[in-house]
Design a protein around this nucleic acid. Structure first.
Lengths: 221, 221
DNA sequence: TGTACATCAGTGAACGCGCGTTCACTGATGTAC
DNA sequence: TGTACATCAGTGAACGCGCGTTCACTGATGTAC
């Protein structure tokens, strides 16, 4: 090698392997041998495996948050003092998510990584993501609040997380689900198909009637 | 020890640790030392770490599938040749899920484990679950088909998985989400509260309008 | 223009460590005669 | 009732292995004078 693209080769290889098998299950030896790069190069360039994991995320999340902030700026400019409708907000978020990896041909990898960030232990990663990228989500949820004034705050919080679960679960299990769908229904599903299917479901879920209030005490485990 | 409860002690400890940190991140040494049991006992009783993982799942899924089958039997007996409404089916599933770990005080652990089964590498585990417990889900989805005749088969498939994602994501991230909700909205959320909140959302999602058909070709990554 | 030195990407080999698994062994209990 | 043997849960120590990380080193390029 002896070129600066060593860093890029490591990141390109690591993101695919992480997405396929998770962080703990992917060794630096696997990454470096697949990337045709010296084992010690990861620690030389990134310092540690943890920092490599964070760098993989940063390469997606930096452009995403930048675009998403810009898209929300435009939306707020268009609507002025009017309330931005929920559909418009969801649409904008979907578009921002789609645009980033479109350049790198790996939306699937991006979504798998997001799923892993939530489900794998890696406490350092959740903290990193929250600190670096939390503010754009705060901005987004505030706009959702204005768009759904009929929802109590707590209800909105839970519904947003319900939908986050839907999206992350769907895309991070994409390959398996796609295989089943293809076999059972003879249709090849693209990511854009899924987003088309998700739209009415997410909107309906956010606008569902409020739950019946608790009747009497209920205990839990 | 020198008692047969060694097996139980291992399972009790393993399920909690697995749920907290995942499978690869939990070593047999951690399990056995916390269970106050000899390291070699896991391999003696279970044969391998893989088999221990499967045994942890079996202890939840065996009683669950048995109960769920029985509950569906009753439902079908009640309704005879009539179609069982969707709400009733979802309610029955929720009740069956709730009943099992109520006996063991650990619904949270059960749901976290289900989440991990989907998100962690562990191919052997997905295969094991599919083989051992696939049939009850086939039965359930067939009943859902009868309850939602207006949905194209593929659409129903995707929506069921969307909702599976909602539930698994919510419960497997329960602690983190609960902490945030508690801090921001001063309300302590029980598992039963969440199920109450989930009900209208899931029903609305399943009954959402069909997506607009694809207009022109759309490519994907 | 030429020499000495600094910088920096990259390397090869080794480090100690924790892992899952194995193995020879113990000691209690049950069974056969 | 007593002895010999089999069974089985459990143990302590060691096995080899793959892991992330470290370290002394190389060799090319840039900079100072």
């Amino acid at each position: 090698m002896a070129q600066t693209d060593t860093v890029t080769r490591i990141l390109d290889t690591a993101e695919v392997l992480f997405a396929e098998r998770g962080f703990a299950e992917t060794s630096l030896r696997t990454i470096t041998s697949k990337a045709k790069v010296n084992l010690a190069a990861v620690n030389y360039h990134f310092g540690s495996k943890k920092s490599l994991i964070q760098a993989v995320f940063a390469r997606y999340l930096d452009p995403f948050t930048e675009r998403f902030h810009r898209a929300l700026d435009e939306l707020q400019a268009d609507y002025g003092d009017d309330v931005i409708p929920l559909e418009e907000l969801l649409e904008t978020m979907a578009r921002s998510v789609l645009e980033v990896p479109a350049e790198r041909n790996s939306l699937k990898v991006f979504m798998r990584l997001l799923g892993l960030a939530y489900s794998q232990a890696q406490g350092h990663l959740r903290r990193y993501i929250q600190e670096e990228y939390g503010s754009v989500f705060t901005r987004f949820t505030e706009l959702v609040r204005l768009a759904t004034p009929e929802l109590p705050d707590a209800e909105r919080f839970w519904r947003l997380h319900f939908m986050l679960g839907t999206v992350i679960f769907t895309f991070s299990g994409l390959d398996a689900l796609r295989d089943i769908a293809e076999k059972d229904y003879q249709e090849h599903v693209t990511v854009r198909d899924l987003i088309r299917r998700l739209r009415p479901v997410v909107v309906a879920a956010m606008q569902a009637p409020l739950p019946t209030p608790v009747t009497l005490a209920a205990q839990e485990a």
